[in-house]
Design a protein around this nucleic acid. Structure first.
Lengths: 299, 299
DNA sequence: GGGAAAAACTTGACGGAATCAAGCAAATCC
DNA sequence: GGATTTGCTTGATTCCGTCAAGTTTTTCCC
């Protein structure tokens, strides 16, 4: 079941669950389309019929008729605009009252659906709804590389442990190792010589990269991780650039890093960036046979 | 803007964005309702007209007419069931082909919406859609208290740091402290004397609690955290029970814990569970003035 | 500047989606 | 064994939504 199927399934669920709410307007003698028009009219500045038809994807003739009905009932006034062809449509007080009434009806219809939900679930619901909207409207936040904030260290540990367990079959000892590294970084670091970054998009964390001091002249790249979902997007290069640039500025002469053979894509990235493989040691660690690699480049 | 308003806004967005897809069926000469019926018919066992009308909230007369049309076009066969009033409706091969065709059309209509999304965003979309469905159908997974898995340690650090920063204004040093505690636990623990639990609902982590050894006879309760969303639900008592029960079984004589004054709800919980406050020390820590408390109870 | 084209809206005509009410046959209830 | 209920069908009706044509004003373009 791919993304499209999920969308289709969701649409079915949603229309089945909320579709019948459209009928709640029957009490007011209005159709769904008319209610949508009224709702769209409820703004500060006047509107034109054309805008309504376009925004709601309705037939112009239908909108015209609906507006005539609204005018007859005293909900709107229409007066010729500068453009003699068009007419400005404005809600009257009675019209606004009507919209408020419809809103109340709609809220009342939705209430029994939301009422049984605990506050936590309501919050989760709002978050999920907004996520769907944001994604479908391609309103993805910009990619940002930022300094560490409270919680980031824990996140770095969590994702290393979870991803290496899933992808490489590492056992629980790996989390202890990473936790030790992060603890050391958080506890005692010289801001001029060591630094960590988190790549984020909106509220979502996509990856991490750290530079620490291994020796006076040697910077060490650590905890370089990218979420599977964000791989293959050039993010890795961007993060590596930031790390290398910082290390240069901090006065290091060389940068060294540890990785292992199974990270092919990472190896290519390092090679592309002037790193050379120095050592390669088969080893038994975290319940798996791995081949450690040490890479190094001048700065 | 409360939950209901968000739902209303989402509905408007969703119908505006995906509503027009309903018209894609025009190519087949079928209406939205008819397509829904056909889709519902596409199952292994035969259906009754009544079930369709009920499941899709359609008028029985309308369903009857639609089925007659399907029969005329050779998409379904109807034959009397045991109950002589009802008729079993079954899709013919031609009918199944039609459904498959409609599915393909619907997928094609959705494709341009999904195509521009990166895999990561598609994954996020599916997750968000499922979350909305699960919440609205009140299909909350059962609450589970489980042992630590890879990544849990990092999560405990992350949530402690993030929540204490948000709620108490603690600075970054607190994360280092928690990270040290977790690292210690992960690195060297005696499974018979120390244990950690994560409370989960589905894939979501709701809280953590740990028991470690402070002295041969003294168990120490640590890293007791509950997500704000899950507070006030009795989860805390459940977790504390598990911890106390484990400590009893592990042969400890007393249980001790450290907390601070501002956690009023926690204090009440401890008092209810036989803990007595032993010490209370005003202190400056993590950039804030706090009042440390030590509580203890016999086991 | 004047005719052609386009834009903003209105109106007429129409198909058909959806609903209400009544009707029919079989099953179930007392 | 009659009354009621159930599952379905049919007829009548409403009105949503669409297509096409018409009116008036504006804009375009030579």
């Amino acid at each position: 079941m791919d993304t499209i199927d999920h969308l289709r399934a969701f649409s079915r669920f949603y229309t089945g669950r909320l579709g019948l709410l459209g009928k709640s307007y029957l009490g007011s003698g209005l159709g769904v389309a008319e209610v949508r028009i009224l709702h769209d009219l409820d703004g500060p500045q006047p509107t034109f019929a054309r805008d309504l038809a376009q925004a709601l994807a309705l037939d112009e003739g239908y909108v015209s008729r609906a507006l005539k009905g609204f005018e007859r009932r005293g909900w709107i006034v229409r007066r010729v605009a500068q453009d003699g062809r068009a007419r400005e449509v404005t809600l009257t007080d009675a019209g606004r009252a009507m919209v408020a009434d419809l809103r109340a009806q709609s809220r009342a219809a939705l209430a029994p659906l939301v009422a049984p939900l605990a506050p936590a679930q309501q919050g989760a619901l709002v978050g999920a709804l907004r996520a769907v909207e944001d994604i479908l409207s391609c309103k993805s936040a910009p990619l940002v590389l930022r300094d560490l904030e409270p919680g980031d260290g824990g996140w770095v540990i969590e994702r290393h442990a979870a991803l290496y367990a899933a992808e490489e079959g590492y056992d629980a000892n790996f989390e202890a190792l990473v936790a030790g590294i992060v603890t050391g970084f958080l506890t005692s670091r010289d801001p001029a010589r060591a630094r960590g970054w988190i790549a984020t998009r909106g509220t979502e964390r996509l990856g991490s990269i750290f530079v620490v001091s291994e020796a006076p002249e040697v910077a060490k790249l650590r905890l370089f991780l990218i979420e599977p979902a964000a791989r293959g997007t050039g993010l890795a290069q961007h993060m590596l650039d930031a790390a290398v640039s910082f290390a240069c500025g901090a006065g290091y002469a060389r940068m060294r890093l540890w990785t292992h053979e199974s990270h092919r894509a990472a190896g290519r990235l390092y090679a592309r960036n002037g790193f050379q493989q120095m050592e390669s040691t088969p080893q038994r660690a975290f319940g798996r046979d791995v081949v450690d690699q040490v890479w190094e480049r001048p700065l």
